[in-house]
Design a protein around this nucleic acid. Sequence first.
DNA 1: GCTATAATTAGTCATATTCCTAATTAGTGT
DNA 2: ACACTAATTAGGAATATGACTAATTATAGC
Lengths: 95, 95
Amino acid sequence: MNQIFKALSHPVRREILSLLRDGPMTSGELLEPFDMKWPSLTGHLNVLKSAGLVHAERYGTIIRYRLNTGAAEDALAAIMALLGSNSKQESKNDN
Amino acid sequence: MNQIFKALSHPVRREILSLLRDGPMTSGELLEPFDMKWPSLTGHLNVLKSAGLVHAERYGTIIRYRLNTGAAEDALAAIMALLGSNSKQESKNDN
DNA sequence: GCTATAATTAGTCATATTCCTAATTAGTGT
DNA sequence: ACACTAATTAGGAATATGACTAATTATAGC
């Protein structure tokens, strides 16, 4: 869970996930919108992969990255737990 | 948003938020469950405060920390946006 | 085997995070 | 003013992060 939030804490990585929302993309395609060199992107992709947020598949010479929504759902659940897990929390008991 | 996810990326800080879910606590009370010195806790509390996840109020010599659910809801919305949120991303009731 | 393309790993450096100890601030009471 | 308690800020060291250049791997085609 730690890794998931850490992965989400960098704007480039959130942008990558946002791009992948519209479908899988190769490393090269993902590189274009960003102003960084390829190894930096690879680093971010590795962080996302370690966190389970993306999944990589090789097709010949290219590698395609796909969003893994399951891990993101875990983060969602964690935040919802912090919020009281429902839309309202009235847990202001005596203290 | 960056700061919120960064704040959530440390287990101690998520635990602090979890503790505050049951009601506001002082810095001293928050210190007890953790195996760290006071300045470290203060550091974590400052990170949470900067992210807007907690709010501090001084009552005499003590300072009471309160969970601010609004910021957490922002993080929730951000993750839901990444997920594509099934069909919509503005609902807080529907789940 | 050689070359070209796609992408990664290795290594380095600057900056950020996270912990600690020591010193300081803020408020209450004498 | 002085002491006591609650909590913070200051400063420093170890580790993690994020960027780069250069070298390497992986695959396809000739």
